[in-house]
Design a protein around this nucleic acid. Sequence first.
DNA 1: GTGCATCATGGAGTCAACTCCAGGGTCAAG
DNA 2: CTTGACCCTGGAGTTGACTCCATGATGCAC
Lengths: 156, 156
Amino acid sequence: MSNDTAPTYRIGEAAARTALSRDTLRYYERMGLLPRQPRTSGGFRVYDEATLERLLFITRAQAVGFSLEDIRQLVSFDGQGLERCGRVRHLIATKLAELDERLSELRAFRRSLVGSLRACDAVLAGDGDPECPVVDPEKPLGPRAPRERALKRDRA
Amino acid sequence: MSNDTAPTYRIGEAAARTALSRDTLRYYERMGLLPRQPRTSGGFRVYDEATLERLLFITRAQAVGFSLEDIRQLVSFDGQGLERCGRVRHLIATKLAELDERLSELRAFRRSLVGSLRACDAVLAGDGDPECPVVDPEKPLGPRAPRERALKRDRA
DNA sequence: GTGCATCATGGAGTCAACTCCAGGGTCAAG
DNA sequence: CTTGACCCTGGAGTTGACTCCATGATGCAC
């Protein structure tokens, strides 16, 4: 039998693999987004692959606009059985509806951005007045990444 | 000649019409998201329709994930002429690219949510183990509205 | 010309989500 | 068995985006 036990990581590795900071991992644990992680005899947190998955899930959820509290509610249903599953289903359905609303907002905003881009091009091509149409009556705006999570070292 | 001058509003009306608070309007002005508004002789801010449009634009931009700083950059190019338009175009193009990335994140997340919903349904229908698949290895999450901006009165 | 709602300003407070820090263990290498 | 990298906890600090407050002026109705 090959000795392929599932790999585990300490907080530094886990942080590197999830592109979060060590402090953020500890913070998530305090906030209940992760259960208290198992520790080594010396007290070091140990992360397994499933937990890293969970962290990536959290990151994606955040990136699309959920608060940590929202996320906590979803992942903290750590009871067992069908009754829990029913509640989770309900939560997910709710979140899905919210997501769809956000999606259509995003699309509407995208349309207005494209419109502005074209208006800009028209102005730059010399058609009409040299008034950039973005900053005046009908101006669209651009999106932005949810957060700069740059893994700054934790008191190296 | 009919006396149809464009309507203007004081801050309370403007706040009501944009579903923002008075304080938020003042805050946006301080932060440079709006130019300093014209005042009545008594010093009261006056808002016109174009400004309300701008506020709605800001709200939409925020709802899809932009920071006020992002938005400020876009709306503060209040110079004139083609050179400004070129810069604005560049900014918009950048934001558009970011937006598309966010859109695909959202769609990916949506897929994972739908998958979880189906997994929940399967469990609830009695197929397989009664282990809700959401909270374990492969759990998706739901989205959330950007912010609850409920127009609390400004020291009514 | 007196009320009363509405407004102004400057500054302090709040909340979420981190981020940093001090003081002190753990552990693998040499 | 010392050293340097890494980790622990508890708590304070930071940033963005508001929100609230005290004090005082406006403005329209009666």
